[in-house]
Design a protein around this nucleic acid. Structure first.
Lengths: 134, 134
DNA sequence: TTAGACCTTACCATCATGGCAAGGTCAAGC
DNA sequence: GCTTGACCTTGCCATGATGGTAAGGTCTAA
């Protein structure tokens, strides 16, 4: 029966990835080219939708498309070493950490400046003073 | 004398903004069109370089070009109310906070998964299991 | 048969930045 | 005066993940 076939809109709803992005992932090679109906519509089966969900979960954790491609190939490889997955994830945690630290540094410096600024109708402002300093 | 005139490379060095980005900022209207020599080279004076440094400091704090444009106009307005600067900065802190929280959520979820994964030669892996779950 | 919801491809935009290519300019050394 | 190398100019392309829009084909239900 056909009931386990999805068109792109249904696959999008089922996976939480927009139709736009599903096409994009196919174009950049993250997904294999989808099967097509005679009229050219892409079709997806349960397996495909399962893969789309995998991709969405990975994106939700901030993995890049390149990293997701690696995760997918590990996922498909039933003889993988879990250490490879773990190190990939650990690498990503490192990157998240780096970004968090960068943003936190910005935030604390800016918070410091904001707390120094009286913030009333007068023009003098330590924030601008700091931005224009040498 | 000419000694207070910089060409784009010198202005780049003095401000810490690449020549490429200086041209870009001019193109998108963050900077006024630079003066030119007869042969078409852009020239910058101390004032200009001061403004470039202001922009770099703002970028270092993560402000967007749009926000920097607002900061610049407040900087130039000697009758500004410091409250406007402060609220602009506070808004940006909010955005930084939001991003930090997003990244932190990713990090803690991923850390949890990583700590569950034995990470040896065996194929079973809670990280992949989680990514492929419903 | 027709309307409306859906699909297709092909562009353009975001945001900040880098790279490259082809060509003009300038300064220093011979 | 000429050459060389460093610098400048513009213009185009690329990133990464996503959204938008437009023009046109398809499917389904009434």
């Amino acid at each position: 029966m056909q009931s386990d076939l999805y068109n792109i809109g249904q696959a999008a709803k089922a996976s939480g990835i927009s139709a736009k992005m599903i096409r994009h992932y196919e174009e950049v090679g993250l997904l294999p080219a989808a099967s097509r109906t005679l009229s050219g519509y892409r079709t997806y089966n349960h397996q495909d939708v399962h893969m789309l969900r995998f991709i969405r979960h990975s994106r939700d954790l901030g993995f890049s498309i390149k990293q997701i491609a690696d995760l997918l190939s590990l996922w498909r490889d039933k003889n993988r070493a879990s250490s490879k997955v773990k190190s990939l994830a650990a690498e990503h945690i490192e990157m998240l950490n780096k970004k968090i630290e960068e943003l936190s540094a910005m935030k604390s410096e800016l918070s410091r400046l904001v707390s120094c600024c009286h913030g009333d109708g007068r023009p003098d402002c330590p924030i601008l003073d700091s931005l224009s300093s040498e």
